[in-house]
Write a protein that binds this DNA or RNA. Structure first.
Length: 206
DNA sequence: AAAATGATCAAG
DNA sequence: TTGATCATTTTA
């Protein structure tokens, strides 16, 4: 069990977003002794002051964005479209509000629980499409892994929500692309700040 | 193509 | 206090 250290997170979200690919996100649910594991296959970087797509654009500091102004290595989880939670990892040093959105994971452990969380039935009864749709989007993976804004602000050095180290994905297998769902962000919408593992099944969109 | 669904935030 | 907006997903 090799948890990613705090230093890893206290860097630019552009670097962290890329290096988080291939790492393993774990949500341990206390009481039930349950562990949900997902391998990160898609991320997006958000970069505070300069980035019109970021919640923290122009250093906007509100109750919601507050956690991004702290040190790196915390969870920033927000509720969107009245229905979905999305999970970010806070990056950069204190007072620099950057984060990385986790957009896709490959289920590794606790798949049966994820299946019930998403579809209310056993994985054995899912269609091929449902099996892919389990965790190939930011809202979907949070629903599958039981990640909600109740976990907002958690330290990723803790025992409930954290990320394990694993070897870096080779540069030739990382694709950089425009971020999703931020067409309002003027020049920032064209930044290639979305990263994903080439040809991976659990990358959102196509 | 459009609905679902409610927290969030800036404006007044 | 209000109303437009929204880093999405599902269904048709």
């Amino acid at each position: 069990m090799n948890k990613i250290s705090e230093d890893f997170y206290n860097r630019s979200s552009l670097i962290v977003a890329k290096e988080l690919l291939g790492k393993i996100l774990i949500h341990k649910i206390e009481g039930e002794g349950l562990e949900l594991w997902g391998r990160i296959v898609e991320t997006e970087a958000y970069k505070g002051p300069l980035d019109k797509a970021a919640h923290s654009y122009n250093n906007r500091r509100t109750k919601r964005t507050e956690v991004m102004f702290g040190p790196g290595g915390k969870a920033y989880i927000y509720f969107i479209y009245g229905m979905y939670d999305c999970m970010n990892v806070v990056c950069a040093e204190e007072d620099i509000p950057e984060a990385v959105l986790i957009r896709g994971v490959e289920p590794l452990k606790g798949i049966e629980e994820m299946s019930f969380n998403r579809y209310g039935k056993s994985y054995d009864f899912l269609t091929k499409k449902q099996k892919i749709n389990l965790t190939n989007g930011p809202g979907k993976l949070c629903r599958a892994m039981g990640i909600t804004r109740k976990l907002n602000g958690l330290d990723l050095q803790g025992q409930e929500l954290f990320i394990l180290n694993s070897p870096r994905i080779e540069e030739e297998n990382i694709i950089a692309a425009k971020r999703i769902g931020i067409d309002y962000a003027e020049e920032a919408k064209d930044f290639l700040w979305r990263y994903y593992i080439k040809d991976n099944t659990f990358v959102s969109k196509k």
